[in-house]
Amino acid sequence: MADLSRDTLRETVIDAILAVAPEADVDALPPGRPWREALEVDSFDFLNILVDLEKRLGVSVPESDYHELVTLEGLLDYLESRLAA
């Protein structure tokens, strides 16, 4: 999975978000804006998205890293670096 392109990774993440919040308009998300708040994803939804991403990518995110997942770009950067490690 390490050679996943940024675009594929983005699609995977968006798909995981849409599985939990199908109404989310991810394309309308202003860059740099906290995505959970803008998309109305609550703590429980967020955990389910992470569980789903772990299944898809094999990356489990410890709580101490949650602060790196605030923006969608941050989430992608984080997953990218974990996948490369």
């Binding site: 199908p22 109404e23 989310a24």
Partner: peptide
């Protein structure tokens, strides 16, 4: 999924 999104909205 449509129903889920419909309810959430």
């Amino acid at each position: 999924r449509e129903l889920l999104g419909f309810a959430r909205k």
